[in-house]
Amino acid sequence: MADQSDWKVRPFQRPKNPQDWPLTPQCESGYLATSNSGWRTLWPQILDNCNSCGLCFVYCPDGAIAKGENDFPYVLADWCKGCGLCAKECPKDAIRMNEDDQK
């Protein structure tokens, strides 16, 4: 398994016949049947004064903040729940919680 950006949503087709439901996970790990994007009301916006310290990446309970180019963080829309922990713990106040416009 690699970084969080490799985790993808692979929708699950609900079988009509009860015998067709899988007894084990439907596919290999790294894929999930549903996204969590409908949970949030707020969306973390990363501002330009971010110094890429990586604290938001450490403290996100959902692993929804990934490191991009030069370790500059970006947020994954499928997994972020908008809890605001990243904005609270950011030492530079470089994350602002906005109304969610990512849906």
Binding site: A2, Q4, L32, N36, D62, G63, W79
Partner: peptide, 8 residues
């Protein structure tokens, strides 16, 4: 970086 608990 590798992530083993995502999407819970």
């Amino acid at each position: 970086n590798p992530e083993h608990f995502v999407g819970h």
